[in-house]
Design a protein around this nucleic acid. Structure first.
Length: 675
RNA sequence: UGACCCAUGGUGUAACUGGCAACACAUCUGGUUUUGGUCCAGAAGAGUCUAGGUUCGAGCCCUAGUGGGUCAACCA
């Protein structure tokens, strides 16, 4: 077996390295630490997938830790929602823990910091403290309270804890370095007074630890080996380590493992926004119906939309883990859900925008039940009977009176097959007084029934249409969704806000007709509406009326062709400057065939017309061995000289060196320029 | 006028210890098909931001530049 080493991401590389350096595999432990102040979204699924995925890969426990150090923002309902979402994703956490579980320990450790002279009570206003902090380019200055005695600090801190001060009167600060280039090291606040009830600790505490003083220490208490978070926490690492090392030095006997923080780039998805704050705005401004609106990138929204845990996991896996800023195309997410649902979703027929179709030679009042496969991808799914009759609905878009030859659907005088039924031929149409098409009348070939094996049934026709019988159809509501924003990166514009790009047509509601088997559908069930896409039953459904959400459309090469015809082909290539293009050729010029070199040379000469001498001069110094670059530079130079560029000493040197070169191509070009 | 991080096809990620830049999506052909779906076969597309250096050899190591990002909440 030729085992190729698995492609690891940088975090896995680090873990492997730690393992070879003596870390025991059984000491591996991870955590996912959401703040219970909102709902989880697709961005979180990346963090969840990384930590829980690592847990699965290394058979290591993963804690679910609620980072609940700010009672002003956090609520039990978010805890519940987060647990539901993670469980739905199919992940199992080892321990459910809370930062608030560690309030007492953290408090004790803070006291020991004070005793060691590593922390002090600052009694200035937040405004004063902010001013003294300086800026990224300007050093901070020490607080006048920085030199308070240990005794005084201890007394004050005790009083703070006992609720003897108002909010904002004092804070506990770590004594580090007000001149550190990293702002977070400039005496960060460890505790503030907050007279708010906490959703778990109630009124036990009126001082609450800050993130930096809580997170790393919680990792340490839980003996997390690798603490993974997103890139914006990179600057926190220095402080994370500072706190950790101080605490470790006193506790390493009971708690021998010192956790490491590592950071990865967060996920950005095209045509949506990801921050809780922005999502909240969409909810508040009623642009969506709520956090679980199927257009929302929240886990609850995705779930309601019909996304499956499998598809989301696949997606996260495909996206990968790195430190680069990224913008992932939604088409990848769509691919993942199609791939999943294609295997599992039963096929049914539903007509979204109906037009009536009457079969003129089909007996009045007759009905028959025709066999249909439930899922061609899965034989075990079996088949079902669908009622057929004289009057049917077909999709309005499936009929055109006259059409181009690339229209494979029904046109006057032509044949198509009705899926699982007969071949029909459109004979005439009926329009209302305003000229709007009301009905298509056609004839059917009674011998052409699907699956009979008759000669007529085996006839090839261009298209196959889905349909439902008028008298048997059940009426349903179908909600189709388009992207929420009209811009791929709605929050990346300086002049405009993401709200300026809200797509006004992101929701389309249709009154559709479904085949009767769908009467049995339950909330959450997914189906493929044949030729249309994947749909699931929304929770708004009632006993009388079903409501469907469109999860995603089928891949549609027909609509693509139509679009392509309309707006020519939009070039995928970004335009690059003439100089850059020339230099790109330089890298491969010598590897080209003679013909390709000729072709390239013409292109370079064309491009050179818009290159200035100043742009070209830096390349006269190109390393001797980079022959290709020198050749293309020479070609371009030739054009400049032809266009009356004065011969400078630099040019002379460049050409002379080229003439002495081993490479014949270069010599040839140089001698042309030389003459 | 700082510190830190990042830069590989259109997008995202790989490439172990330097050794023919790979995979997925997207795109385009062709075939199969009672879904313009699926499936199958194939194509095109980058020479790794720029310049210099080390090396027999650099996407990978070093230096400088350029571009992008992050950092000044008693938020997390």
């Amino acid at each position: 077996m030729s085992e190729k080493p698995a492609a690891l991401n940088f975090i896995e590389h680090l873990i492997e390295e730690d393992l070879t350096n003596g870390l025991s595999k059984k000491d591996l432990r991870f955590r996912f630490p959401p703040e219970p102040n909102g709902y989880l979204h697709i961005g979180h699924t990346k963090a969840i997938g990384i930590s829980f995925g690592l847990g699965e890969k290394y058979q290591a426990p993963v804690n679910l830790r609620f980072d609940d150090t700010n009672p002003a923002k956090e609520e039990q309902k978010y805890v519940d929602a987060i647990k539901e979402d993670i469980a739905w994703m199919g992940y199992q956490w080892d321990k459910e823990v809370y930062s608030s579980d560690y309030f007492q320990t953290l408090y004790n450790w803070a006291i020991s910091f004070i005793k060691k002279g590593l922390a002090y009570i600052d009694s200035q206003s937040s405004e004063q403290i902010r001013l003294q902090k300086g800026s990224p380019t300007q050093l901070g200055i020490n607080s006048p309270y920085r030199t308070r005695s240990v005794e005084e600090n201890l007394a004050l801190f005790t009083k703070m804890k006992n609720g003897e001060f108002k909010e904002g009167a004092h804070v506990l600060r770590a004594k580090i370095d007000m001149e550190d280039p990293n702002m977070l090291m400039r005496d960060p606040i460890m505790y503030r007074i907050l007279k708010k009830a906490h959703h778990r600790t109630g009124n036990d505490w009126c001082i609450y630890p800050m993130y930096d003083w809580t997170h790393g220490e919680s990792d340490y208490i839980e003996q997390i080996s690798h603490s993974l978070c997103s890139l914006e926490f990179k600057p926190h690492r220095k402080l994370y380590n500072w706190f950790r090392d101080e605490v470790y030095s006193e506790n390493y006997i009971q708690l021998p493992l010192a956790p490491k923080q590592r950071e990865f780039a967060r996920l950005n998805l095209s045509y949506t926004v990801m921050s809780k704050r922005k999502l909240l705005q969409l909810v508040d401004k009623k642009i969506v119906s709520g956090w679980d609106d199927p257009r929302m990138p929240t886990i609850s929204g995705l779930r309601r939309r019909g996304y499956t845990p499998n598809a989301i996991k696949k997606f996260i896996e495909a996206v990968g883990v790195a430190k680069r800023e990224n913008l992932i195309d939604v088409s990848l997410l769509e691919f993942c859900i199609r791939e999943d649902l294609n295997q599992t979703a039963p096929r049914v027929m539903v007509v979204l925008n109906p037009i009536k179709l009457t079969i003129i030679n089909y007996p009045e009042g007759k009905e028959e039940f025709l066999k249909a496969d439930n899922n061609p991808e899965d034989e075990s799914a079996g088949c079902r009977d669908i009622p057929f009759s004289k009057e049917l609905y077909i999709e309005r878009a499936d009929f055109e009176e006259v059409a181009k030859s690339n229209f494979f659907r029904l046109t006057l005088g032509n044949e198509v097959r009705l899926k699982n039924a007969y071949i029909i031929k459109a004979e005439s149409i009926i329009k209302d007084s305003e000229g709007v098409l009301k009905e298509v009348r056609c004839s059917y070939d009674a011998d052409s029934l699907s699956g009979t094996g008759s000669e007529a049934s085996l006839r090839k026709v261009k298209g196959t249409l889905h349909w439902v019988s008028v008298s048997h159809a059940i009426k349903t509501e179908v909600r189709s969704y388009d992207r929420l924003f009209t811009d791929a990166a709605p929050d990346s514009h300086k002049e405009k806000t993401f709200m300026d790009f809200v797509n006004p047509n992101s929701l389309t509601v249709s009154q559709a007709f479904a085949e009767p088997s769908l009467a049995l559908a339950k909330i959450g069930n997914s189906f493929q509406f044949q030729r249309l896409g994947y749909f699931n039953v929304d929770k708004d459904s009632t006993g009388e009326a079903l409501v469907f959400n469109k999860t995603v459309g089928l891949r549609d090469s027909w609509i693509k062709k139509k679009l392509a015809n309309n707006n020519e082909l939009t070039s995928q290539k970004a335009t690059i400057s003439p100089l850059n293009e020339v230099m790109r050729f330089g890298k491969k010029y010598t590897k080209f065939s003679i013909e390709k070199q000729q072709e390239t040379k013409h292109r370079i000469q064309e491009l050179a017309k818009s290159i200035s001498y100043e742009e070209l001069t830096p390349f006269f110094g190109t390393a001797l061995k980079k022959v290709g670059t020198r050749i293309v530079t020479m070609i371009a130079l030739g054009v400049l000289i032809k266009n009356n560029q004065e011969i400078t000493p630099e040019i002379r040197v460049f050409v002379r060196k080229a003439l002495e070169d081993k490479n014949e191509l270069l010599v040839t070009e140089a001698s042309k320029v030389n003459s």
